[in-house]
Design a protein around this nucleic acid. Structure first.
Length: 415
RNA sequence: CGGGAUGUAGUAUACCGGUAGUACGUCUGUUUUGGGAACAGAUAGACUGGGUUCGAUUCCCAGCAUCCCGACCA
């Protein structure tokens, strides 16, 4: 993509109404636009990142047998009344609205009820189980206080998966598989080294659940980590019983602030019973389906990456999620340089290297460098009079100080 | 939801009960071009509604919006 055609622009000034690093850098870089408190639009560069993360999650979910669907945001209140989750006392984040005829509707904050309802049409026999269904969907939650940029919003993108098994044994097998898939996701988005599976409260669903927490000082949660075993516990369930069941000792635990980047739950019959999602087993007995749920906030994950992987100059995108792999900079405007930069741009594109080409004119080198640092593509490639004298292009990684001049052929070998 | 704060050009800010200033941006022109260039000119602003006042962007009230701390986070 030619940067001269990109409609977004970078900003030097920090927006006065953003304090969190993710919102500051993403806004300055033109990745996102704040519509209102806790509600953000994704602009071309930001959407590319979001889609890359989504795709990584999609690949990992497919790898463990997930089947992708897309459910509706509009929700029928009758369905939620059956599980006693319609009233504002029970679920206080509902956005509610009405049809013209006064029928009450909700904007989906999660999708247990509708997905269970869908599966009633298709699950009859033990032969139909297990089944793993997921989607990427915009969730609406009327948070009392949105904060921290895209880490806690009122409208956000989430991957939610639901598992349908015949019994707890079959469920546990998948539950463990999902942990591995989740950790694969965090590794691929560059957070693997600081993300842990954390034993946590199950909220109103179950006694316990597992969270995936990325350690960072801006996190909202407190976790206790045993660094020898890698086993961690959320503060909310830190007690002797839990510690004993996990086989860890209180004195070995280190406290960390962390951001919750995923959460998996065992539901059992919590939804299948009230909604009558049953199946017949081998003996002809009718039993409720054993369910679980698995969530990852895609936009929150993007914000977490920015919080953790940035420096004082800007973002440092990991390769798999960067909007483009290469930021190609044209420095100087004489015809030779322009022609050469265009050629390099074409060559990279022909070789399927995703490249943002800073072909803008009338700008100083310093301004282009500053933009490249802010936008944070993994590789910066410079075409200039200087690089041409040395018969090559200058390539520098975003997370390294020094670059080197290489030929275009050598450059292509890097990708 | 409890507490606190703030609303001034596109952005960031200043001053003021009496003609609203600066920087960045944007536009025009000239010169520049390896770490956010220089000069000249231009562009554009007081959240909304009420009140006090000869006069309100400034003071008061209400609404709306935004941020921060706490609570909440199924």
């Amino acid at each position: 993509m030619r940067q001269s055609k990109l409609f977004t622009k970078t900003r030097k000034e920090v927006p006065a109404d953003e304090v969190s690093k993710n919102a500051e850098l993403l806004t300055r870089g033109g990745f996102i636009h704040k519509e209102m408190a806790g509600v953000y639009s994704f602009l071309p560069l930001g959407l590319r990142v979001l889609k890359k993360i989504e795709n990584i999650v999609r690949e990992e979910m497919n790898a463990i047998g997930g089947q992708e669907i897309s459910m509706t945001a509009l929700q029928d209140s009758e369905l939620w009344k059956k599980t006693d989750r319609w009233s504002d006392e029970k679920v206080d984040v509902w956005f509610k609205t009405k049809l013209k005829n006064d029928t009450e509707l909700g904007l989906g904050c999660t999708h247990e009820e509708p997905v269970t309802n869908i599966m009633k049409n298709f699950i009859n026999s033990y032969r139909d189980l297990p089944s793993y269904i997921y989607q990427f969907q915009t969730k609406f939650r009327n948070e009392l206080r949105a904060k921290a940029g895209i880490l806690r919003g009122r409208e956000f993108l989430m991957k939610d998966m639901y598992s349908f098994c015949k019994d707890e044994i079959e469920h546990n097998e998948f539950y463990e598989k999902s942990k591995v898939a989740y950790m694969n996701v965090y590794k691929r988005v560059g957070l693997g080294h600081i993300t842990y599976v954390v034993f946590a409260s199950g909220g109103m669903f179950s006694k316990y659940s597992h969270e995936f927490q990325t350690i960072t000082s801006v996190g909202e949660d407190l976790i206790y980590l045993d660094e020898n075993t890698g086993i961690a516990v959320n503060k909310e369930v830190l007690n002797d019983e839990v510690l004993a069941s996990l086989g860890i000792k209180r004195e070995n635990l280190v406290e960390h602030k962390a951001i919750e980047v995923g959460n998996i739950f065992t539901y059992g019959k919590r939804y299948s019973e009230p909604l009558n999602l049953n199946f017949n087993n081998e003996k002809g007995e009718t039993l409720p389906v054993f369910m679980g749920a698995y969530g990852i906030g895609i936009s929150r994950l993007m914000g977490t990456i920015v919080e953790v992987l940035s420096d004082d100059k800007g973002i440092i995108w990991p390769e798999e999620v960067a909007p483009f792999k290469v930021h190609l900079l044209m420095l100087g405007e004489d015809e030779e340089v322009k022609k050469r930069a265009d050629e390099v741009y074409e060559i990279l594109q022909k070789n399927k290297v995703e490249v943002l080409f800073d072909d803008r004119t009338g700008m100083s080198a310093g301004e282009k460098f500053a933009d490249a640092d802010l936008l944070g593509m993994p590789y910066r490639v410079v075409v200039s009079g200087r690089s041409m004298k040395e018969n090559g292009v200058e390539v520098k990684k975003r997370n390294e100080e020094k670059g080197q001049v290489v030929s275009v052929d050598e450059l292509l070998k890097l990708f």
